[in-house]
Write a protein that binds this DNA or RNA. Structure first.
Length: 375
RNA sequence: GGAUGGGUAUGCCUAGCGGCGAGGGCGGCGGACUGUAAAUCCGUUACAAAGAAACAUCGCAAGUUCGAGUCUUGCCCCAUCCA
């Protein structure tokens, strides 16, 4: 499973062994919610830009095309022609993002489909069943991602329910892995820590879920409205209570700076829609800060997005051309920006792993941050 | 020469049918986005004004009216059709 190769301060360099191959950590998982990274990015592209783990979503794939369709097509790996690890998020984030379309009960969550309004019930068992049908490498526990500004009483009750749900997830996942027609009998379940910005609730919850001896743990419910300082503080508070010999996954985070800070605090897995969404919106990451290629200043810029970058966009195209494509709403413009951003993230993780191995993570991080801040 | 339809803001197109210091779209410029209801959303896009004060040649001019982008008349321009 997880093998810790080296520690540099609290930063961890590790390997996570799965039935779909080894994940080198720290890792950034590339988000393809509906079994595709938005922006016309193909599975072949993922191979080219150094993707290790593809991430898809339980709720969205259940709504469309339906997890039973995916199961009949042989599971998500066959369906999207990707043989490396896949992590499926449980639908817990949709409890947050689709707050206006759902009702939470002890047994689970009643959603109204965002596509056609159809009633959808998803509890811990349903989420596990769907993820088992999808046959992802790693399944996430069904949790409630509460808003960071939720009051203490609400958060406490929510976290207690999320703990009860986690136990139900574990039982159901064990049952599903035993079934004869289950595609991935080695499917791994990660638990999720919650507690908004209340340190004591977070810590108590972390201790509780750590006792369940799951193959990995996530910190959820961050980067949903709180400040960076609050987020970093919670990470520091929680990590000592999660097993160091298991991977820690900071869900939905974040900016390159967020990742650099979190790695320093001991986080192994990341995912975020930023590189893909920002790419579609013409914002691209470089070692000298973020550019908005739609800005007029790039109209006649004949440089690549980033000098020396080996991504498919930078190897061949200028900022001026990509800006033109974006302005003209040519799909290629978005695609090139998304490819560049994902490459930037994946490549940064490679640098991070190398720096930890060399024991110079601090220097690497400082240099990287200074560069991105234009120093 | 005749017929018909039009000319709305120092980018383009358009709403308007007597209370308009004129609504919308496109384009332009800028911003936001953190386990994706997002190729989305928001702001801005004549001049002046930080406010009881300031009136944009709504093609131009004259008129009717308390009041005109809106009604009348004349003129100019554009488009299409007919000679």
């Amino acid at each position: 499973m997880y093998r810790l190769i080296k520690k540099d301060g609290n930063a961890k360099r590790g390997e996570f062994h799965t039935v779909h191959g080894v994940i080198q950590t720290p890792v950034f998982m590339n988000v393809g919610t509906a079994a595709a990274i938005k922006g016309a990015v193909s599975t072949e592209d993922l191979e080219e830009i150094g993707t290790q783990v593809e991430l898809s979503n339980t709720y969205h794939l259940h709504v469309r095309p339906g997890d039973l369709v995916v199961k009949q097509m042989g599971g998500l790996h066959k369906f999207m022609s990707w043989d490396k690890p896949i992590l499926t998020d449980s639908g817990g984030f949709q409890v947050f993002s689709l707050a206006g379309l759902r009702k939470i009960k002890e047994e689970g969550v009643y959603f109204h489909s965002h596509v056609d309004g159809k009633k959808i019930f998803m509890g811990p068992e349903e989420s596990m069943q769907i993820q088992s049908n999808l046959a992802s490498t790693i399944a996430m526990a069904f949790d409630e991602c509460a808003p960071s500004k939720a009051d203490r009483g609400y958060v406490k009750a929510s976290v207690e329910r999320t703990t009860r749900w986690l136990k139900r997830c574990k039982t159901e996942m064990a049952r599903l892995c035993e079934l004869r027609d289950t595609i991935n009998k080695e499917q791994l379940l990660f638990g999720i820590n919650q507690g908004a910005i209340y340190e004591d609730i977070r810590v108590e919850h972390a201790k509780e879920i750590a006792e369940l001896e799951l193959p990995g743990y996530a910190i959820g419910g961050l980067a949903v409205g709180e400040s960076h300082e609050e987020m970093y503080h919670i990470i520091e508070a929680v990590i000592p209570h999660l097993p160091v010999e298991k991977p820690t996954y900071l869900m939905g985070v974040g900016t390159p700076a967020n990742i650099l800070e979190a790695v320093e605090r001991g986080v192994d897995f990341f995912d975020c829609v930023y590189p893909s969404r920002n790419g579609r919106h013409g914002h691209v990451y470089t070692n000298h800060g973020k550019l908005n290629l739609l800005n007029a200043q790039y109209e006649l810029d004949d440089r690549p997005i980033e000098e020396g970058c080996a991504c498919p966009a930078c190897r061949r195209y200028t900022r001026a051309y990509i800006r033109h494509l974006l302005k003209a709403k040519e799909m290629l413009g978005m695609r090139l920006c998304v490819l560049h951003n994902l490459y930037f993230y994946n490549h940064m993780m490679e640098e991070i792993r190398e720096a930890i191995e060399k024991g110079c993570y601090q220097e690497y991080k400082k240099k990287k941050l200074d560069g991105m801040n234009g120093k």
